[in-house]
């Protein structure tokens, strides 16, 4: 871990929208390096521009200003090396768990047999073995989010963006899913950029935490979390870091 390889880098990203004939700034001059196989958490108050930033990285939106690089190579728009787990539950209700999961490779034109194999691997990995033929409306919120995660992994991206994936889950399920995502990441190393507005979740999961300011999003500070995993959320170090970050956090608008 001494010489860390930079996987993704964004440079001077700024973005805004025209709202009521006026420019509304959502992200302001964000520059960030993400290391290979790192679990990076982006922490920010509600409505600060976290989703906007992820959409820019994934290419769903084009930033007004700024560049993006993967492995030192500039790229524009979307890229199949980047996958995304969405903030809302984003399953196609008319497709089974299997069909939802294999959607990416299917779009890429992979043969049925091959994509089934990959999808099965990740369905098993997220713990949904036996639910392949179920439709989403028969699944609980946590299970649906697992399908979303399996689908993102099935594209086999090098970088995975997760936009508050557990934001809509109840506290109990949320803790369970935090442990799950950590296990999955340790089993299948990828570069993960995980967005949240929850400080505990950030410290529990992140190798580093990027703290954003309120809107327009700017990087306030980057914290290294050097606690051994799995982390103990009542240890003095954990609580100390938590206080440090929370004192530095802007109130949401």
């Amino acid at each position: 871990m001494d010489q860390k390889k930079i996987k993704l880098s964004i440079k001077n990203i700024s973005h805004g929208y025209i709202v009521n004939d006026d420019v509304f700034q959502a992200a302001s001059n964000i520059s960030l390096d993400v290391y290979d196989n790192e679990f990076l958490v982006i922490l920010g108050p509600g409505h600060c521009g976290k989703t906007v930033l992820l959409n820019i990285i994934s290419g769903l939106e084009e930033a007004e200003v700024g560049q993006k690089e993967i492995d030192g190579q500039p790229f524009k728009g979307s890229d199949k090396r980047i996958g995304m787990v969405f903030q809302e539950l984003a399953l196609m209700p008319w497709k089974t768990v299997m069909a939802n999961t294999e959607f990416g490779p299917q779009m890429a034109g992979m043969s049925k047999q091959q994509r089934r194999k990959i999808a099965q691997k990740y369905i098993d990995l997220v713990g949904l073995h036996g639910f392949e033929k179920s439709y989403p409306n028969k699944l609980s919120g946590g299970m649906k989010q697992r399908v979303g995660i399996a689908r993102a992994y099935t594209n086999e991206p090098e970088i995975l963006l997760m936009d508050e994936p557990f934001g809509q889950l109840d506290a109990q399920t949320r803790y369970a899913m935090e442990e799950e995502i950590q296990r999955i990441w340790q089993q299948e190393k990828r570069t993960i950029i995980f967005v949240t507005n929850n400080i505990e979740e950030a410290i529990y999961l992140g190798d580093r935490i990027v703290l954003l300011s309120k809107c327009p999003a700017q990087i306030k500070e980057i914290y290294d979390v050097n606690l051994p995993r799995p982390r103990d959320s009542v240890s003095p170090e954990f609580l100390g870091l938590r206080k440090q970050i929370s004192d530095n956090t802007d109130l949401p608008l």
Binding site: S58, G59, L60, S78, I82, M84, E88, M92, F103, M107
Partner: peptide, 22 residues
């Protein structure tokens, strides 16, 4: 639902494919 369109976009689908599949 817009997010389903985004899912397909991040999977690299063309506009026509999204029309057809989503």
């Amino acid at each position: 639902v817009p997010v389903l369109i985004n899912v397909a976009k991040t999977c690299g689908a063309s506009n026509f494919t999204i029309f057809w599949k989503i």
